[in-house]
Design a protein around this nucleic acid. Sequence first.
DNA 1: CGAGTAATTCAATGTCGTTGAATTGAAATC
DNA 2: GATTTCAATTCAACGACATTGAATTACTCG
Lengths: 209, 209
Amino acid sequence: MMNKSGTRGRRRGRPETRAQVLEVARRRFLADGYQAVTLRSIAAEAGVDVALISYFFGSKKGLFGAALALSANPAEIFLQALPGDPASLPERILRALVGAWEDPAGGGQLRVMLAGALSDPDLARLLREVLEREMIDRIAEYLGGADARLRAGAFATQLAGVIFARYLLALEPVATMTVDELIRYLAPGLRAALHGPRLNRLPAGEVRR
Amino acid sequence: MMNKSGTRGRRRGRPETRAQVLEVARRRFLADGYQAVTLRSIAAEAGVDVALISYFFGSKKGLFGAALALSANPAEIFLQALPGDPASLPERILRALVGAWEDPAGGGQLRVMLAGALSDPDLARLLREVLEREMIDRIAEYLGGADARLRAGAFATQLAGVIFARYLLALEPVATMTVDELIRYLAPGLRAALHGPRLNRLPAGEVRR
DNA sequence: CGAGTAATTCAATGTCGTTGAATTGAAATC
DNA sequence: GATTTCAATTCAACGACATTGAATTACTCG
């Protein structure tokens, strides 16, 4: 980096500029989010003209996609928390979830990925497919039984609620609860989802499928 | 509207321009989302100069907040479902939630509003404050008791999960479940949140505060 | 009537992402 | 080895954006 000496044209040797831009972009996007980061600031930090980024990646969205494609580590966390006693699965998963999101190293990745995915339909579809395949299906497989997928869905819905309320929205009091408080107040609901609805609680006219 | 005749200065009569701008802004924001809508387009549609909007509302965020304040308040839906038998509160609230989001008239509006709010930190803060004040505090007040706010938080978290999984992400199987299925599989967890953790379920080393 | 204030437009500013042209180096072709 | 071709790079400009300051007109209160 630190070229930008005003000299036009191609640089000497084989250029690694593209990779440098990508690395700067990835760090900045994960640190400050998509909107807040400007192409010009990335270009300046990478010692490069702004136009070069458009030349390489076509657009700001293209750069964002390329930067995220580098290290996309989706919900692998859940798989590691899955094996073990089903009774303590809510606690294990909640701890894994909080640990992943509050890890200083990779925590911001998830937030930025989600925020970006919600604004772009294509990214949203991609994320949805990953979550269904890697999370819901695995949980359903772990649970077993007739309505395993529905129970897994209810389970995942509550986890999504934690992510949404605590990390995306920072809603109080969820945002500042300790992990133990989270477990104490949310684990019962998660357990209820795992067990599924009781048969004698069916609403009138409903048939168990 | 339809002034913009080039004549400077105040208009004749008592001006209702502010309300018109607000109405246009609300419709456009709900239709296309925060990012996509430009102040200039709102100004043009309202027959007004762009600068007038900044004069009235300070900034684009201010306009969004003002438009949001008079829009169909999502928290108001919960308030209407709140009074009644506590045992059936989860069912009432789930029906109200689904009804509000799947109402053809105002259905996608809430979604766009949320997506817009999540992309900008200031807008997210605005939404957060509304939800805390209008939703969590009301539920806590309804519940009563020592840890009412924590239980309300757990309750709201699960509702946030429904919104996130079913409407924002369209995650299967939650997205295509019927209302009755949603109730059957999620109401137990919501009831558990309302009741709070059982005392004999405290993790080792934990003390009830 | 006169002073103050509210509403309104105009013009300017600075930032943003993107585009086209010019320049330079490297690789391919003859 | 010279020439053509292509990739990388900067520069300059464009149009759109939100915001701000100044000018202009109308209303309100004494």
